[in-house]
Design a protein around this nucleic acid. Structure first.
Lengths: 345, 345
DNA sequence: AGCCGGATTGGGAGCGCTCCCAATCCGATG
DNA sequence: CATCGGATTGGGAGCGCTCCCAATCCGGCT
């Protein structure tokens, strides 16, 4: 039998309250509260007495009581569409979380993780967020038609997006400079003498996918690239494979492919191999994300690295700012990408 | 200027309270509370009136107020040592989270994600958990000397571990049947005629690593395997490579390797290739985890799959049980693994 | 008609904290 | 020595909810 069952005092009610600390320190509740919250206007003597009492009693403030009166929750939510956790290049997920956690580390903000899987859950989430249970929201992997950002806007709840819906995104966001990254990748291919550089895009209802396609086009300068060299996919390996087959059928002479994700690039490499084409000899391949997949393909894949962990950290910092200063105008941050050259190009 | 600034009523205080619902429905607070919490003893008439009022007002209970009086928080924490998010095979992290989320889906439990990075943070966490801010704790990737499980025990806080510290683990846990999985892998190699099967272990202060090593030994039956065929590493790719070099030096004639993780196996395959040995012709390789890495090595790797998402789901369910029924004896659940045969063996 | 007991109901008390104001203290000033 | 004002302090009020008990209601029975 657990101690808690025998003696209800052990868990819960036994914990010292503000009042107990006040009594022990021989001061009033107000003074203890001031010390705990670091407000000014407490004499050194009183402060010392309170701190001593706190230490002796092992006092920890009751968060619920505080929330009840201040209506701050000291919690932020990280909302991730469930589907993304499967599709997106693997480390994306953990890197984001790691970054966000790091950004929150010196705060005593709690991180609530919310995976949204179904439309039903999405609705529940709306109710949830409306109910003020968090001080702010981080939202990653937004699609263009995602209703959540709009909801956050109307709720006037501090929020920072990872990525943006379009280039006119009103909410604060952090994203990688996808267009430049893609452009650098394609320029790299062209610079190595490739002539017919194809691309495999992500789903075009995501701005990341569009931006990478734009970068691909921009790399061609005034010379509009052959539209038959553009194939659309969905960030999955199978999608990448399918797109590669299409491309080979349409333009058998292509000599390079830029895929908007490593996973798609891996699918493409598979198809190339099956078609008897060698990488990079016959067809050079560049991916995007520099995920773990890129390092393990054969040959190892050239890829565009995005600083995902830093993005998470930045998002967290921006959110804390917005929470602390509600009037703040929204901010838009783009972080640089970096081309990591390996043997596939 | 945001609406909230102009009109403080918009955010927060404007939300209807229990009292408001009661007034609107023409009943007392108690009745509304009973309806909201689904307790019995409410007439159909009253219930209908209350439900109508709730819908009209868009009432959502204030969690903090409820927590304050019940001292339930309706939140559980998932604690992950930060280091693991880097080392462990990538999808582990997201699969676990996905599983836990799924297991919590029909509840209105919140999931708090806590990444512990430093010893300092670990201490803070102790204070945090002692402060009753969650109803229960999920703890993954425990090391033998981890002080947290013991803390949870003394706090008498509902907890479920992912993995166990030893085979005498008192706390509830869910783990994969590592020994059987490893055994199956090695038997598979022996069954294909391999004679000198080496193994690369994980850090032996983790029970998973020990269990997989035990499985390796068990597969050899009465015939104790040559101890020179056992090399220790740390679940990293570099560690796997280093161990492989050691093994090749000690026993150049080995014809198979079972690594306790895919990532280590990938490192080993790299070394084998550099040594001019072909996989699987000269040396067969089997990994553990069946992570994304296994599918992308060259050749694709045979690996032992563990049902990580299901483990997460099971952990969540068990925790909910322990929270609901505090007296419950601790439970230990082992989930079966499965050998996925690919070209590396 | 009067009474009984179970079903239903209302609302006081109180959870632990912050906010805020009135009270007190104390050194400095005239 | 009286007065003044800023610094410090104590504690009432109240946040929104659940718990619980006393009060009320009502159908059935004598």
């Amino acid at each position: 039998m657990s101690r808690a069952e025998k003696d209800p005092e052990v868990r819960g009610s036994a914990r010292p309250t503000l009042e107990a600390v006040a009594a022990r320190a021989g001061v009033g509740r107000g003074t203890v509260s001031r010390v705990v919250n670091g407000s000014a206007g407490v004499s050194a003597r009183a402060r010392a007495a309170v701190e001593k009492a706190i230490a002796e009693l092992g006092y920890v403030p009751n968060r619920a009581a505080r929330t009840l009166v201040t209506s701050r929750t000291d919690a932020v939510a990280l909302v991730i569409p469930e589907a993304e956790t499967r599709l997106v290049a693997e480390p994306y997920f953990s890197d984001t979380i790691r970054g966000v956690t790091a950004g929150l580390a010196d705060t005593d903000m709690q991180l609530l993780l919310i995976l949204v899987r179904t439309a039903k859950e999405r609705e529940r989430l709306a109710a949830y967020l409306s109910a003020q249970r968090v001080d702010g929201v981080l939202l990653v992997s937004v699609h263009e038609d995602d209703p959540l950002p709009t909801l956050l806007e109307t709720l006037d709840l501090p929020a920072v997006l990872g990525g943006r819906r379009s280039d006119r995104e009103p909410l604060s966001y952090v994203h990688a400079d996808n267009a430049s990254g893609a452009r650098a990748a394609v320029e790299h291919l062209l610079g190595r003498g490739r002539r017919a550089v194809a691309t495999i895009t992500g789903p075009l209802d995501m701005e990341v996918a569009r931006a990478r396609l734009d970068g691909y086009r921009a790399a061609h300068g005034a010379a509009r690239p052959d539209e038959a060299l553009v194939a659309h996919a969905d960030f999955t390996e199978e999608g990448g494979a399918r797109a590669m087959r299409e491309l080979l059928e349409r333009r058998p002479g292509l000599d390079a492919v830029f895929a908007a994700s490593d996973v798609m690039a891996a699918g493409a490499m598979q198809v190339l191999r099956e078609a008897g084409l060698r990488v990079p000899r016959d067809v050079a391949v560049v991916g995007f994300d520099d995920s773990i997949v890129a390092r393990h393909t054969d040959p190892p894949m050239t890829s565009v690295r995005q600083p995902i962990e830093e993005m998470g950290r930045t998002m967290a910092h921006m959110l804390l700012d917005e929470i602390a200063h509600p009037g703040l105008p929204h901010r838009h941050v783009a972080l640089a990408t970096e081309l990591v050259v390996r043997e596939s190009s």
